[in-house]
Amino acid sequence: MSEFEFGDRALVGRPLCVARFEVGGIMDLGASAWTTRRIGYITGGRFEGPRLKGEILPGGGNWSTAGVGADGAAVGTFDARCIWKTDDGAMIYVTYTGRTWVPPDVGAAFRDPAQPHVDVSRYRLRIAPVFETSDKRYDWLNAVLAVGMGERLSDGVRHHIFEVV
Rank of each mutant, 00 (worst) to 15 (best):
V118I: 06
V130H: 13
T86E: 14
A114R: 05
D105K: 05
T133G: 06
M91Y: 10
Y138N: 02
A114M: 01
N142T: 08
A90I: 10
V147W: 15
T133I: 03
L145E: 13
A146H: 10
H117F: 15
I92F: 08
W101R: 12
Y96S: 01
Q115A: 06
V120I: 14
I92D: 05
D105Y: 07
P113W: 11
V120Y: 06
F131E: 13
D112T: 02
S154D: 14
V130D: 12
A114S: 08
L145T: 15
T86I: 13
T100E: 03
D135M: 04
A114L: 01
L141H: 08
E132P: 04
T97P: 04
R99K: 12
T100M: 03
P116L: 08
I92P: 03
D88G: 04
N142M: 06
D139Y: 07
R122K: 11
Q115P: 01
P129L: 05
M149W: 15
V106K: 03
A128P: 05
L153H: 13
I92L: 07
R111T: 12
V120G: 03
P104K: 02
M149V: 14
R137T: 04
E132G: 07
A108V: 07
T133W: 09
G89N: 12
A109D: 00
V130C: 12
S134T: 06
L145M: 15
A128I: 12
K136R: 12
T100H: 03
P103R: 00
L141V: 04
S154V: 13
R111N: 12
G150R: 01
V102M: 02
D88A: 05
V147H: 15
P113L: 07
R111L: 15
A114F: 02
F131D: 10
D135C: 02
K136E: 13
V118Q: 00
I127V: 10
R137E: 10
G148A: 05
A146K: 11
N142D: 11
A108C: 02
Q115N: 08
D88W: 15
D119I: 08
N142K: 12
D119S: 12
R124Q: 09
A114W: 00
V94D: 11
Y93A: 11
L145D: 11
V130K: 13
G98C: 04
